[in-house]
Every structure is written in C-alpha cells, then in structure tokens.
Write a protein that binds this DNA or RNA. Structure first.
Lengths: 154, 154
DNA sequence: GCTGAAAGATCACATTT
DNA sequence: AAATGTGATCTTTCAGC
C-alpha cells in the first residue's frame, strides 16, 4: 500500500531528521547534519526528498494560545437521529464546513461523534450553541463538556 | 494582564507576519517582507521580537500521519479517587510525563480529566491500557471511547 | 561528500517619522 | 526616540563535480 511505502523507505537518518524538524522547523542544514551525523549537504538533500515524497507536508509556526484569543475548549458528544448513511454524510459535511469545529471524530460506543471546539474572544459558548450546535443536521442529542484547563497539548 | 499585553501590542504588520509563518514557517525574510509590505530586514527584526516576546513559541515540521504510524485515536474519561489537590497534581505530573498522551484536559462535569491518546504501529490499545492507564496514580474510574475515523483535524 | 556561486540572514549605520 | 531602509558581511543553500 501507498502507506507503508512512505513508511518503510525511511532509514534511521530520515527518522532522526524528522524528529529534529518536528521540534525546530527552522533548523539549518548544518544543524540537521550535526544532529544526525551527516554533512550539511547530505542532510539537506534528504530533507528535500522527504518534502517531495510528502513525508514532510509543511512547516508551521506555533503561536502562543492567548495571542490567538483562545478562551477554552469544549468537547461535544453528538448522537444522531438515526443510523442512515445520508444522515452521517450530511452531518460530516456540516462539520467540515464549520470553522469553529477543530476536530470531529466518528466514535464507537454511546455517542456517534465527538467534536472539539475552541472558544475564542470572538466565539463564546453561547455563540457556538446558537450558530453551530443547534443548526447541525440530523442531531438528536448533544452533551457538552467543558475543559477548565488544558493540562497538556500535543 | 500579561495576556492582553502580548495581544494588544501587535499591529497589523505583526498579525500578517504571524499569518504567513503559521502557513509556512520557513518563509524567508524577503518573502515575509514582500507579503506584508516591509523590507526584509524590518520583517526579520519583527519576527525576532515576536519570538522574544513569546508570541511565536516555536516552529514545527508537519509530518504525514501515516508516516508516524497513526492507527487511531482513543479518548479516555478519567475520574479520580478523591478531590484532593495532591491527587490532581500527581495525576497531572504523570500525564505530562507520559509520551503516549497527546492531550490532557481538566474537565467540568462527570469526569475529572479527558485524555486524548493516539494509537500507533508501536502502541496498541492493549499497550496503552497496560502501560499507561493502569498505572496512572489516583484513578478511580476510566471510560475509553474509540474514534473509528477522524472526520476533521485542526 | 565537497566546492563554489547564488540566495538569504544579520548587523551597524543612515534616514525617516 | 522609535522604527525603517540600505548596504556590507557572514552564513546557508543547492547544483555540479
């Protein structure tokens, strides 16, 4: 499969390079080479190949949460009205289209979906409830749980 | 508060720079300058200041999910044995120290904590249960919910 | 992996507001 | 004073060997 191709091609140098770049996307080729035990040019060439292969899909700056106006996180357990395929598809389309929804997981067990929503200065829970949750199609039951504090984030 | 200091100090140049760097952490000073309408050196200077102020907290390479061997996501609702401060602190220290735990939220309502754990080729649910969940201190009740499919991610 | 030319980063200093 | 632009210098990138 296309999956394990990408995966199995990687040797320990590649894995190390990825590890370093995950922690510092702006590491120079010299840094990378030193970290993994290659010359700068070899390290650089490998990184370019990893980008081309789609192993490295991008580089992002991490911005302090408060700068982005983060006010809190809400997890919402969603139960749909029925188990028809169309109901699920409609709900997922709505979830994908909604900018306020950070994550959406199709779940086993009690609820059908778990949503993660980040509240911001410009997006209170009341807004979420009025503009997001109450207009999602096919919803039978909602149960919101509030994060009081994020102890750890990935 | 320290919060709105960081926030309100930012002018539209800073905001634009952040927007660009969030999408491409490796943008050059020339790129940044062009994007926001400053000289490369001015753009560069501003970025350094944003880093110093703690507005930009880091730069991360984004790695394809399958390369990381992602197999699924589990959400675990945790109830502690009691509400003593020490119990919470112990639990949080353990959560922070545990690499398998991607997110940990202190919650209102039923459960005390919500954990997000990503299963990998090298980390099955059985492993998680044996090596992570069953050894967390101060835990009274656990309820795991499995994500069948990630519909949407951040 | 090395070399060298081109591109970029970074700093002191002049300039603008 | 505070912030920008300019240009000189050092570092990094990247193609050819």
């Amino acid at each position: 499969m296309a999956n394990s191709d990408k995966f199995s091609d990687l040797d320990s140098f590649d894995r190390e390079l990825i590890k370093v770049l995950r922690n510092d996307a702006r590491a120079t080729s010299a840094d990378l080479g030193e970290a993994v035990g290659l010359s700068p040019s070899a390290a650089h060439r490998r990184v370019k190949i990893l980008e081309q292969k789609g192993v490295i899909t991008g580089y992002r700056a991490v911005i302090a949460e408060n700068v982005q106006g983060k006010q809190g996180t809400v997890f919402v357990h969603v139960t749909l009205t029925d188990q028809r395929r169309e109901t699920f598809e409609k709900f997922e389309r709505a979830a994908l289209a909604c900018a306020a929804i950070e994550e959406c997981h199709l779940m086993s067990g009690e609820a059908d979906y778990l949503l993660k929503i980040v509240l911001r200065e410009s997006l209170s829970y009341e807004d979420v409830h009025r503009d997001v949750l109450s207009i999602m199609p096919g919803v039978s039951k909602l149960a919101s749980s509030f994060s009081i504090r994020t102890v750890k984030m990935g």
